[in-house]
Design a binder for these strands. Structure first.
Lengths: 139, 139
DNA sequence: ATTCTTGCAAACAATTTGCAAAGAC
DNA sequence: GTCTTTGCAAATTGTTTGCAAGAAT
């Protein structure tokens, strides 16, 4: 999606292009992963201020537009990331808390099984696997 | 685990067997799945009253003892269930919100892949797959 | 009798909402 | 100028904590 493409999309739906919305999207892009709070903090590094409630409202809007998605990597707050770059499965290590990503094909067997056996279409992009990474397995 | 077995276990660790603890465990067992709030409501159907904070404290204790586990099926509240019956993968339908369970072997390919490729040991019992069930796929 | 547990209310954290002022079109 | 969006503060919701009274051992 080009820079102007989503501006068009916003306008087409009667929404407006505001600096806040651009800043939030930019922050999500730079952070890769981020909770609303983290995204808010990131935005504040560059711009003077964006209210936390605006961040929430913007993330909701961006999600509705399909530009970002979120997963629940921890119990406290949801984590947002670009939908375009969301084509991966999340791995969260219970030992060190490290979050990593792996190719979605990794889950192909599971996806195919669910589809064939139950007619359930899995959204791999929202898939998070908890466990222990190599380093934390021994410790 | 027999009825008395976990009573012994509680006492062995210096904890006490109280009606509240038995009621909460019973509620989790009957509900299958439940948020702290739902569990509290269930308990109140039979007994006069258990405070919500006691439910939280009890679930924390039961989890520590390995009798229950929890997953995050929605953004709002965690869902608790019996650890003994937790050997399954959760499916959550985005359409109707229905929560179902499937055999953990379904994820064998994924688990094996992560293990072999990254040395990551996945905890399948905490795995939740989001998507759309057969019924909601068309609608 | 001792020590763990509970209930209650207050403290907290994350998120949402109402509304007037500011901004995009 | 019209209608959306923002900021702010207050309201909600989910969860935790301090402490005195109550219960299990």
């Amino acid at each position: 999606m080009t820079e102007t493409a989503w501006h068009e999309e916003l306008r087409a739906k009667g929404y407006r292009v505001t600096p806040q919305r651009q800043l939030v999207l930019e922050a999500v892009k730079t952070l890769g992963h981020g909770t609303p709070e983290e995204i808010c903090a990131k935005v504040r590094q560059t711009a003077r201020g964006v209210n936390i409630s605006t961040v929430y409202r913007t993330l909701e809007l961006l999600e509705e537009l399909g530009m970002v998605t979120h997963t629940h990597l921890n119990h406290v707050a949801p984590t947002y990331h670009l939908a375009a770059e969301a084509d991966h499965v999340h791995l969260v290590c219970r030992g060190c808390g490290e979050v990593s990503e792996v190719r979605p094909e990794m889950a192909d067997g599971l996806v195919k099984g669910l589809e064939e056996e139950l007619g359930f279409v899995a959204d791999v992009r929202h898939l998070t696997v908890f466990g222990r990474c190599r380093g934390c397995r021994v410790a």
